[in-house]
Amino acid sequence: MIVLAIDTSNQPMTIAVMKEEQLLAEYTTDIKKNHSVQLMPAINQLLADCKMTPQDLDLIAVGHGPGSFTGVRIGLTTAKTLAWSLSIPIVAVSSLEVLSYNGVFFNGLVCPFFDARRGQVYTGLYQAEGYEKMVPVKDEVNVLMSDWLEVLRGTEESVLFISSQASIHKEKIQEVLGEKAVFSSLPVHLPSAGMLASIALTKEPTSLHELTPNYLRLAEAEAKWLESQKGHQQSE
């Protein structure tokens, strides 16, 4: 079983090839660059390094968001089309869940998040089970960090925050959670496609044509439209 894993949902891009649960190669960048330009050359190089052709692949794993709408679509479009072209299954994993695995050895709660601008974040809450599996404690949400911290306030356990944009929210987090908040100084805030590949092996494949991005947020125009419909109904 050879897995190609892809996640381009946020600024980091990570891809990996895993064979029989052995991580053969992983390439991760965290530079401001266009994923559309970067991704396919990187996949081409990674497979070449592994002396593999696309036909050797048995499974595609993809981090399908949340994150930058465009970034999510680049990864998902590439993954879906590869899986369809090669007639192999695809497994989609939340990009937050992928990131949460970087805290699999942490005793306590793990809170991965991506900054979503204007004080908002995409986030969720996880807890390790037997140091090998992350179990969701709360559903993923797109929420104001201040509101999310109210949810976490008063927690008995320590919370490990994993995010490459942690600095934006660090002060606020410490204000509410005090010493319960833990931040890593090591680069565990980058998602790992190797991790994604191994998570994918524990999950059921997704129906390919029905697989859509995990945006966690409506398009602005749609949100406004729904709001206007609500107002419309009330006034009637």
């Binding site: 396919m40 679509r73 479009t77 072209s85």
Partner: peptide, 20 residues
């Protein structure tokens, strides 16, 4: 539209790559 173009471009690349 850039976001729209990117879907087609990346689908085309994946398709071309898969079949070389």
């Amino acid at each position: 539209l850039v976001g729209a173009l990117l879907v087609g471009v990346n689908a085309a690349k994946a398709l071309a790559f898969a079949y070389q």
